[in-house]
């Protein structure tokens, strides 16, 4: 179950939220985590660096939950 993409996403989210919130695949990124739209974009920069990939903004625009994000990033990583 050692998925480096899932780990990178969770680590980046923990850093962005200060580790104060319990995270699961069902957590809604904007609503429950209180991240603003700008903070979400900055958090995408972080994931790009951790995984050394480029994540075009339109690919993650519709993402709502952490699980969606992991799936989307995994898809981009497979393509690249």
């Amino acid at each position: 179950m050692n998925d480096p993409i899932r780990e990178a996403v969770y680590e980046a989210l923990r850093a962005a939220t200060g580790g104060s919130v319990a995270l699961s695949d069902d957590t809604r990124i904007m609503g429950e985590l209180g991240l603003t739209s700008v903070a979400v974009l900055d958090f995408v920069l972080e994931i790009e660096d951790r995984l050394d990939i480029a994540i075009p903004l339109d690919r993650v625009a519709g993402v709502e939950t952490i699980g969606d994000l992991v799936a989307k990033v995994s898809e981009i990583k497979r393509e690249g």
Partner: peptide, 21 residues
């Protein structure tokens, strides 16, 4: 066109992102 961002005013960060592309 796909859109990505680089860290504000950070030329090294820009270079890293261009390398990925």
């Amino acid at each position: 066109a796909p859109v990505t961002r680089f860290r504000h005013n950070d030329a090294d960060d820009l270079a890293r992102r261009l390398r990925r592309l």
